[in-house]
Nucleic acid binder design. Structure first.
Length: 137
DNA sequence: GCCAACGTTGGC
DNA sequence: GCCAACGTTGGC
């Protein structure tokens, strides 16, 4: 299993929306690096769900339910989507500020390239983030 | 193929 | 609202 981090503006599509819908087609990716990451996802891979802009925090985990297929919302170009289902909400949100201040998380593309919307996360980082959110501040 | 100009994303 | 970072476009 590989681990990922996906970003969404909560005003557009939040983790709560994903829980309500039960499954979602992760569409609209229009960046080649992000698309290639989408295409590398396999069924069962887990992804951290990050709220950008107004929230700026990792709030939950979702699971890849269907591997990549053509993005039906793309009018032109070679774009892909995957299907995601919610797995669980984190005990507490992990804020960007906390991520930035943690020496163990400095390698996250979230910090190094704030504009990438789909990125790989190492197993160590993934497990560490889960452990962090099981503990209180 | 290079690079300047422009557009978009997202943090602050 | 501003600006930095990055990606894309288009002229040469």
């Amino acid at each position: 299993m590989n681990c990922w981090l996906i970003k969404s503006e909560p005003e557009t599509f939040s983790y709560e929306d994903l829980e309500r819908d039960g499954i979602t087609m992760w569409d609209g990716v229009r960046n080649y690096a992000a698309r290639n990451n989408l295409r590398a996802m396999q069924v069962g891979d887990q992804a951290l769900f990050y709220h950008s802009l107004s929230d700026k925090a990792i709030v939950g985990i979702c699971t890849v339910a269907k591997a990549f297929y053509p993005d039906p919302t793309a009018e032109k170009g070679d774009w892909s989507v995957v299907d995601m289902v919610p797995l669980k909400r984190l005990n507490r949100a992990l804020s960007l500020a906390e991520i930035k201040s943690d020496p163990k998380l400095q390698q996250l593309p979230l910090i190094r390239n704030s504009r990438l919307s789909v990125m790989p996360v190492s197993r160590e980082e993934f497990d560490y983030i889960l452990w962090l959110t099981e503990t209180s501040l």
